[in-house]
Simulated scan of single mutants.
Amino acid sequence: MAARIEHLVTSGEFTLDGGTWKVDNNVWIVGDDQEAIVVDPAHDADAVAAALGDRRLVAIVCTHAHNDHVNAAPALAARTGAPVLLHPDDEVLWQQTHPDRAPDGPLTDGQVLTVAGTELTVLHTPGHSPGAVSLYAPALGTVFTGDTLFAGGPGATGRSFSDFPTIVESIRDRLLALPPDTVVRTGHGDSTTIGTESPHLAEWIARGH
């Protein structure tokens, strides 16, 4: 059976720089009836585990280490034995949420993760955070962008460890280079496509000046 994409929405709080906001997060499960990868286990390890059922969890992939994307990762790892993977440049953010528990392995640019015979390529797309990554699955015609690219533009860059020119460069060079019909599955809110977002690049650049 070919890999499929499942979508779960969990709710909780995002905390950074002394502020706290209520948020709804997209949790993505990629796999088949036997095995799966979870992208950004947010807020509720029980809900994610229930969605997985008895499938083997190959890896827990964190697109970045803001607390709302990683707060359920250790609990899910403890339940399943799956490794938590994070780009090393985001470990400073990870430690704000989990000071006593390091990630189990790194994500590196160009790394390929395989689940249910389907390859997901890690694209380092910094800007929202230093170690932000996207996961491109050409066989599924999709890219998981975390908080780097949303329907309507780049992710937020107004807080610590973020940078607007860097996120625009990541989107321009790494994401908008993908086929236009590639579905963009985001960390929050609705999905979009590369072709829908790419005409607005010049507007985003202008907005940042």
Rank of each mutant, 00 (worst) to 15 (best):
M1P: 08
A2K: 14
A2I: 11
V9S: 10
T10Y: 07
E13P: 12
G18M: 00
K22P: 14
D24F: 13
N25D: 13
V27K: 03
W28S: 00
V30E: 11
D32L: 02
A36M: 06
I37Q: 01
V38R: 09
D44C: 03
D46R: 11
V48Y: 02
A50E: 05
R55N: 03
L57K: 02
A59K: 05
C62H: 09
H64G: 07
A65P: 00
H66F: 12
H69W: 12
N71H: 14
A73Q: 00
A77H: 05
A77W: 14
G81W: 07
P83A: 09
H87R: 05
E91H: 13
V92P: 08
W94G: 00
W94L: 04
T97L: 05
T97E: 03
D100M: 11
R101I: 02
R101Y: 07
A102H: 11
P103R: 02
D104I: 04
L107M: 00
L107K: 09
D109F: 13
D109N: 08
G110M: 13
V112T: 10
A116Q: 00
E119H: 10
L120H: 01
L120T: 06
L123A: 13
H124R: 08
T125N: 05
G131V: 04
L140V: 04
T142H: 07
V143Y: 02
F144V: 06
F150I: 05
G152C: 10
P154L: 11
D163T: 15
D163Y: 11
I167V: 06
S170M: 15
S170F: 13
I171H: 04
R172I: 13
R174L: 12
L176E: 08
L178T: 02
L178N: 03
P179Y: 06
T182I: 10
V184Q: 04
T186P: 09
G187V: 10
G189W: 05
T192G: 02
T193P: 03
I194M: 01
P199H: 02
A202L: 15
A206F: 13
R207L: 11
